[in-house]
Amino acid sequence: MNYRPKHAGSGPASNSLRILEIVARFGTGTTAKEITDALRMPPATAYRLLNALVGDEYLVRTSDLRGFALGHAISGLVMAATPPTVPTAARTVIEGFRQGNRFGVHLFMFTNASLRIADEDPDYPLHSVFEMLRYPQTSAAGKLMLAELGDPAFPLPDRQLLKLTEHAITESGKLEEQLREIRLTGHASAINELGSGSASLALPVRLPNGSAGGALCLTGPAERFTTICGHADAARELTSRLSPLLF
């Protein structure tokens, strides 16, 4: 069977992606001959790319050495493209907390040192999402994740600490100081840092080993931050209920 994805190129990167797609479609044990036949690819080209993909752990050889399977490096790509899974029971608990509150309640997960949106409040959508995910120091949830990563993750290069607003942290030393405080207090906040007039408070959702695997984040206008903080104890209780449902 011949197979050629739409708009497929012929360069090394395109050919490598086509090989990965064939292995994903055909399944564990896909042979080099099946790949070359499906893609009408010269064997020499296929073998060179297969060896490179195995070396980078995007593919692995099967135990009998006759075929190939997707490697663990693919999982990172899949995770990045797929929203975190949140059980129905956890969503129900979060939705119950949202009722009656006039601020956003969002769930984030920390995956491979990246901030992932797991459950966004439909009534109070997140703003400046690209900036939040790209520059985690601008939001409470992102700061909580950075604090959990610990000192080895820093100092961040100052060029990555963009001045999104006049209140944004632009020096790695000041950020490190704030992260140390977050580790002591067990919560993080950001006021007018991601965008003027915005505020957020984040509390950790902990893994069984006690480390933070995610964050419950309360968001709203900066002028209502004191009111938001008044719900911190209830939010912390909610994180205790969420932990066994998520982890």
Rank of each mutant, 00 (worst) to 15 (best):
Q99D: 12
A46F: 00
D233F: 05
D151M: 09
I74P: 01
T165I: 11
L17I: 09
H231R: 13
S240D: 14
E223G: 07
F130T: 13
A215K: 02
M132V: 12
M145C: 01
E34P: 08
A113C: 02
A73V: 03
L218M: 11
E95C: 00
I19G: 06
A13D: 13
A199R: 02
L133F: 04
R61E: 14
L238Y: 10
L184D: 10
Q99K: 15
D119L: 15
H231K: 12
P83F: 02
L59Q: 09
L39D: 03
A140P: 08
M109S: 10
I182L: 02
L203S: 00
P157C: 05
R116T: 07
R236H: 01
H127A: 11
D37Q: 07
E176S: 13
R236W: 00
R236Q: 06
G220A: 04
Y58E: 01
D119G: 07
G195W: 04
P155G: 05
E148F: 04
A113K: 14
T92G: 07
S63C: 09
L115K: 13
M41I: 13
N15I: 07
V93C: 03
A232H: 06
R25S: 08
L39T: 02
E166F: 11
R4I: 11
E177Q: 13
A52V: 13
T30I: 05
A24H: 05
R116H: 13
A222W: 03
P83Q: 00
T219A: 14
T227F: 08
T82S: 03
E120L: 00
L203M: 04
L179P: 00
A199V: 01
A73G: 05
E193C: 08
E21Y: 12
G55W: 06
A44K: 14
L77F: 03
G195Y: 10
E181G: 07
Q160Y: 07
D119T: 08
Q99V: 15
T62E: 01
P244M: 05
H231M: 11
E21T: 12
P204W: 12
R102M: 13
D37I: 02
G173V: 04
A80V: 00
I228F: 06
L203H: 00
T111S: 12
E166I: 08
E34I: 00
E21L: 07
P204I: 08
H7S: 09
T62C: 01
I74D: 02
A190W: 10
D56P: 01
S128T: 09
T111L: 12
P84W: 10
S198N: 11
A24D: 11
H167S: 13
L201H: 08
P152A: 03
L77H: 00
R241N: 09
S14L: 02
D64C: 05
R159S: 15
G197N: 04
V93Y: 00
I228N: 05
S243V: 12
R159N: 07
A90K: 02
P204T: 04
L162H: 04
V105F: 04
H106P: 03
A89H: 06
R224F: 00
T239D: 05
R4M: 12
I22Y: 01
A13N: 12
Y3P: 01
I191P: 02
G214E: 07
D233A: 14
F154S: 05
N101I: 14
T82K: 01
V205N: 11
P84D: 07
R116L: 03
L77S: 05
S200Y: 06
G197K: 00
R159Y: 14
S172T: 09
E95R: 14
R25T: 02
N15Y: 07
